[in-house]
């Protein structure tokens, strides 16, 4: 459903992505692992065109686009079928939880307000925030904000949701509530591409793992195989280190 071919990206002299390819099938939960600075986040941001890649091709939902030459219209069309959950939530600060969720429906998709509110409430209910519709982001905890962000992502009925280290900014006791929502989505068959440091999540929830280092994919495979029988020395070292 999503295929990336040979994506490259440099910031000045620094080569961040040196030709990464990946494939996500419908219903897959793909975890992207790797040490800091390996290019995971840049990869995800390029895939949703928040950064412009220098080279690469994307096949999304049957359409092929160039990652460095995609037009505004092509990008807008792709973004309407995807959703993005940020590390630091990025909720609209001047909107309530419910407005955060309905904004993309009413404004970007021209949905009738009543219908959008209904979908918005349903999405917030799903992430366990039925009692927080009218709260502003500043009145919510980090975990609650991230769950609003997930509800905002769900509301647009995306074909895939990208998660950029969704729990990295959270206190350990708040990561659980976000991870369990993501786990629930995975069970329901939502396609997800998740950059994460949560090994337990990657092992238990994801169907596929991609391990990156220095702008390259070092190893990839199904989650069980990756964790139980890592192939490369580098992956073994990484897994040993994160188990300690």
């Amino acid at each position: 459903m999503l295929e990336i071919r040979d994506i490259q990206k440099s910031f000045g002299a620094l080569e961040v992505l040196k030709g990464v390819s990946l494939q996500v099938e419908q219903g897959d939960v793909v975890a992207i692992l790797g040490p800091s600075g390996s290019g995971k986040t840049t990869l995800l941001r390029c895939i949703n065109f928040l950064e412009r890649a220098d080279a690469g091709t994307m096949v999304f939902d049957g359409e092929t686009v160039s990652m460095h030459r995609a037009s505004h219209r092509e990008i807008a069309a792709i973004r309407k079928k995807t959703a993005f959950v940020f590390q630091n939530y990025n909720l609209f600060r001047n909107k309530t939880a419910l407005q955060n969720v309905t904004e993309g429906l009413v404004i970007a998709r021209r949905m009738a307000k009543a219908e959008a509110v209904e979908i918005g409430k349903r999405s917030l209910d799903k992430v366990g925030l039925s009692d927080r519709y009218d709260y502003y982001p500043s009145q919510l905890s980090g975990g609650q904000q991230q769950r609003v962000a997930i509800a905002r992502a769900l509301a647009t009925d995306p074909k895939i949701i990208y998660f950029d280290e969704p729990t990295s900014a959270l206190d350990p006791e708040l990561t659980g509530e976000v991870l369990s929502v993501m786990q629930q989505l995975a069970t329901e068959g939502m396609t997800m591409l998740v950059v994460t440091h949560e090994m337990t999540f990657a092992r238990n929830v994801s169907s596929k793992v991609i391990f990156m280092e220095d702008g390259l994919v070092v190893e990839e495979g199904d989650a069980k195989g990756f964790f139980d029988h890592p192939k490369t020395e580098r992956t073994k070292a990484f897994l040993n280190h994160s188990n300690q």
């Binding site: 928040l50 909720l91 609209f92």
Partner: peptide, 30 residues
């Protein structure tokens, strides 16, 4: 206004002008 507000707007499918009018400008005017 944090750049993430703009990015979040793009990611929910809004256009530049929609984000300016609904998200960035109201926060900036405050």
């Amino acid at each position: 206004v944090p750049v993430g507000q703009m990015e979040a707007g793009y990611c929910v499918g809004m256009s530049y002008l929609q984000i300016m009018r609904r998200i960035v400008l109201p926060q900036a005017m405050r």
